[in-house]
């Protein structure tokens, strides 16, 4: 194992003051990085260095640092969440890099995800898509049905559960050549459409969420499959097919 060998790296990081001003790459060096540290810890070390030098630290998103919240992002050397598959940036470890490597770090690039500062982008477009229909209306008058009392076929439960694994990170949008949000939106639409509680509003939901997705300025799907490759949660393209079916049948039956 090379675990004791520390790394010295060149970083090219996108710096941008705010959404108005144009950004640019700045070069940095970090030394003595443990291969066992995570990518975000490496950035913490860089920021520590910058603060000591009285320079502005690099802004980046993160929260749980255990791969479940969907806050971390970063396009690392040309790939969302870096070179590993099925992991988020917070779960990416420095042993994936070699001593002396140059690492390009860029924010998600999408018209619908404007840069707020440095590597932080505004992903509230996803929140608005969810708000437009990514919910199940329940009766709260006291006679709510216990979810476990409803029989659900095993395959449907499994598929819904797989779709529910989406953490809303936006890597699919970042990777897609069209900056399309269809993997994300389809995960939400399928998850709910597969369950009896969600079926009731399935048609209205499909129409509303797709309309909101389009209004946010995300691109169209070209079925390249890039989103599926880079999604840290392994969300399948089958969800996009399911969304297409839901949307097409909802459009035919729509009475508005």
């Amino acid at each position: 194992m090379t675990s004791n060998r520390s790394l010295s790296l060149k970083l090219k990081i996108w710096r941008q003051k705010n959404s108005q001003e144009p950004g640019r790459f700045e070069g940095y060096r970090v030394e003595d990085i443990s291969p066992e540290s995570s990518f975000l810890e490496m950035l913490d070390i860089l920021n520590d260095q910058l603060i000591r030098q009285n320079k502005s630290s690099v802004a980046f998103d993160h929260d749980c640092r255990e791969g479940i919240c969907g806050m971390c992002s970063l396009y690392i050397n040309g790939q969302a969440h870096g070179p590993d598959q099925l992991v988020t940036t917070c779960q990416l470890y420095m042993r994936r890099f070699k001593n002396g490597d140059t690492i390009y770090i860029e924010p998600w690039r999408s018209r619908a995800f404007p840069v707020i500062k440095d590597l932080v982008v505004d992903r509230s477009a996803f929140d608005r898509v969810i708000a437009s229909g990514g919910f199940v209306s329940v009766n709260t008058s006291g006679n709510t049905i216990d979810g476990n009392a409803l029989p659900i076929p095993k395959e449907d439960a499994d598929k819904a559960f797989d779709a529910a694994a989406c953490i809303g990170c936006g890597a699919c949008v970042a990777t897609c050549k069209n900056a399309s949000a269809m993997l994300f939106v389809s995960a939400k639409i399928s998850q709910l459409a597969l369950l009896p509680q969600g079926k009731v509003e399935a048609k209205r939901r499909a129409l509303a969420m797709v309309r909101q997705m389009d209004e946010e300025g995300f691109g169209n799907c070209s079925n390249t499959g890039a989103c599926e490759v880079e999604c840290p949660k392994g969300i399948s393209l089958e969800n996009i097919a399911q969304m297409n079916r839901e949307y097409l049948s909802a459009s035919i039956q729509n009475e508005d």
Binding site: G23, S110, P114, T175, K177, S180, G217, G219, N220, T224
Partner: peptide, 28 residues
């Protein structure tokens, strides 16, 4: 679709992108 999809990326594009890692040539 091509024009819309191009503009959905925004004005700034990636400096480094590993196309071969995720987007097949024929689809691109």
């Amino acid at each position: 679709l091509y024009i819309q999809n191009k503009s959905a990326r925004g004005k700034v594009t990636y400096a480094v992108n590993q196309w071969q890692a995720h987007t097949p040539f024929n689809a691109r």
